[in-house]
Simulated assay, not measured.
Amino acid sequence: MSAVGLHRVLEPAGVLPQAATRLDTDPTIGPDEVRIAVERLNLDAASFRQLREAGGDIRARVLEIISSRGKMHNPVTGSGGMLIGTVAEVGPESPLGLKPGDRVATLVSLTLTPLEITDGLQSWTGASEQVPCTGHAILFGRSIAAVLPDDLDDDFTEEMALAVFDVCGAPALVQRVVRQYREPTVAVLGGAGKSGSLALAAARRSGAARTVGLVPTQSERALLDRVRLADLTALADARDPVATAAAVETALGGPADVTVVCVDVPGCEHGAVLATAPGGTVIFFSMATSFPAAALGAEGLAADVTMLIGNGYVPGHAAAALDLVRAEPGVRALFQARLAAH
């Protein structure tokens, strides 16, 4: 029995569950495993966008991915999402601190979580990245899960909690990086999105001198202005590196010390690098990022910047994100607007 789930890998042998092409979804748990009765999936933004733009029957495509791979692992984007459900059974050696009946959100990617769906996703229209469903999932000894908060109500709903948990690594990493600088300027590409809004709030709370949220449309700019999460807003397509750098520099009076990429489309790497000051840091918190493009682009631009991959986990990240939602009306309003749109 492996705490990282090696025993659940069916193909190919010798890789970790995230790299596997197929996982074993047997509901019989091992001594350190936990079985979750699944209630809702949250597809990550890059994966949902790709599936939607590919056309065809999105529900059938998601079902095919899950049934063939034993997990929700989009083969195009390489990403998955996370889920909520109720703990059904806990192995006697599980270190996760969960008990049967706990309603939890998994804080590990669906790309490495054994998952079986039993209802054909019949309650999902395909219009939202949140997918109501029935089935089971397996957590390993080194998985992560958070018990759902007990202050859920009409203002702070279960759907909102799920959306927050899906991106809770972003604000925690932004907070860590911003605190390494003395009153830095911070640019968030995709500032009106879920991870972007949390990143802006975290940057301000952590001592940023000024923040700018960059968005691609006037409607998103109006939304970001209304919730007042950023000191400044800027309009540009983050896939256009020259326009992105110009918009950030115009807003801040120069390049940003810290640039955070929260855009769910590919092609934003070069603009982020170009918009960042020498000695600054770029945080790529998007599964649409091409890391070779980022590295080679920075080299080609002779850009002396540190580039970080937001891996979705920082100790205490779930509690920190929930605190931002509770304490910052702008974050909560933006999440409500995003959820209502779907």
Rank of each mutant, 00 (worst) to 15 (best):
P255W: 03
A251Q: 03
G213R: 03
L189I: 02
T250K: 12
S206K: 02
V227L: 03
Y181T: 02
T211R: 02
Y181R: 12
A222G: 05
L198P: 10
V261I: 15
A246D: 15
A243R: 11
A203Y: 09
D237Y: 05
G213I: 08
T217G: 07
L232F: 04
G253R: 10
K194H: 07
S195G: 15
S206T: 02
V242N: 14
R182D: 14
R228Q: 13
Y181S: 04
L214A: 07
A247Q: 10
R228K: 04
T259F: 03
V263D: 06
K194Q: 12
L232W: 00
D240V: 05
G254N: 11
A245M: 04
T259N: 09
V186H: 09
D240C: 12
V188G: 13
C262I: 03
T259H: 07
A234H: 10
R221F: 00
P184A: 03
E249S: 15
Q180F: 11
G254P: 13
Q180W: 13
D231E: 06
P241F: 09
V263G: 08
A201E: 10
L232R: 13
G207N: 07
E249H: 14
G207P: 06
T217I: 02
A234N: 07
L189A: 11
L229E: 07
V227G: 03
L235S: 05
S219W: 02
C262S: 15
T185Q: 03
E249Q: 14
Q180S: 14
A230P: 08
A209F: 11
R204C: 00
A236D: 02
A201F: 00
P241V: 12
D225G: 00
V258I: 15
R205G: 00
G190A: 09
D231P: 03
R205T: 01
A208K: 00
T250W: 00
D225Y: 01
R204T: 14
Q180A: 11
T244G: 10
T185V: 01
V215Q: 06
V242L: 14
G190D: 11
V186C: 03
V186Q: 06
R226L: 06
G207I: 07
L252A: 12
V215L: 04
V186N: 02
V258S: 09
S219G: 01
V212G: 05
R205V: 01
V248W: 12
S219L: 07
A246H: 13
L200C: 06
A230I: 05
V261F: 01
V212Y: 11
L229R: 09
K194E: 13
G191S: 11
S219H: 12
D231G: 11
L214C: 09
V215D: 05
L235M: 09
A201I: 01
R205E: 15
A236K: 09
A247S: 14
R205F: 01
D240T: 12
T211G: 01
A230D: 06
V212P: 05
L223C: 06
G191L: 07
L224M: 12
V242R: 14
A230Q: 08
S195F: 05
C262W: 06
R210V: 04
T250M: 04
T217K: 07
A230L: 05
V242F: 10
Y181Q: 05
S197G: 15
V258Q: 08
T244I: 08
R204N: 00
Y181L: 07
V242K: 14
G253F: 06
Y181K: 09
L214K: 07
T244W: 10
V261K: 08
T244A: 12
R204W: 00
